[in-house]
Design a protein around this nucleic acid. Structure first.
Length: 178
DNA sequence: ATATCGATCGGCT
DNA sequence: GCCGATCGATATT
């Protein structure tokens, strides 16, 4: 994911996500449309940002089509040349990228200063673990959480998964032309 | 009108 | 591993 604000470019590798679908009770859109979750029911490709536990924000990207409350929660991002835990969790991620309720419903695009593109990490050399979602009390059996096994920036590892002692397999590199 | 509950995190045991 | 912070949304009276 990349973010450009005040002429500063901040980017990192999305290393952990969770999926939420209107048809399951873990989703904010499961019950009904409200002022808070309105964006989740809207156009795909937009940010759904909400306040959780009174102090943290969670950033989602709306998926599927309008009328369906489906989205992907961005849980962790590994940022080159920064502390590996700086965005190792939904609240930390939102904080580091400066995203809050004011960014709710923002279209993910270069023009808006926040976008996602495919990088070198997206190859089959990076093993992806699929497991159950974190911090929810409903629909706990759904295995709709994915994270990069080799990354030390994942919020929390699944039982039995070991964090590698070596650094991430991806190499920090500065990009040109942005 | 009042009570309960979080898609979390940091501190403490 | 457990607990409290903190407040908006939702449920209950």
């Amino acid at each position: 994911m990349k973010r450009k604000s005040n002429r500063q470019l901040l980017w990192g590798v999305i290393v952990e996500t969770e999926a939420y679908c209107q048809s399951e009770p873990g989703c904010h859109g499961f019950h009904k449309r409200t002022k808070r979750n309105e964006t989740l029911f809207g156009e795909p490709g937009r940010l759904y940002v909400y306040l959780t536990y009174g102090k943290y924000h969670c950033v989602n990207i709306v998926t599927y089509k309008s009328g369906w409350a489906n989205g992907v929660l961005l849980r962790a991002i590994a940022i080159p040349n920064e502390h590996e835990r700086i965005a190792a969790g939904p609240g930390l991620l939102a904080n580091r990228f400066g995203l809050n309720r004011s960014h709710d419903n923002l279209l993910v695009s270069i023009e808006n200063g926040i976008w996602v593109c495919k990088g070198k990490s997206a190859n089959n050399m990076n093993k992806i673990i699929q497991t159950t979602r974190i911090g929810i009390s409903k629909a706990k059996s759904l295995r709709w959480r994915w994270y990069m096994k080799s990354s030390r920036s994942v919020s929390k590892r699944a039982k039995g998964d070991r964090c590698p002692s070596v650094l991430q397999s991806w190499q920090p590199r500065l990009e040109e032309g942005l």
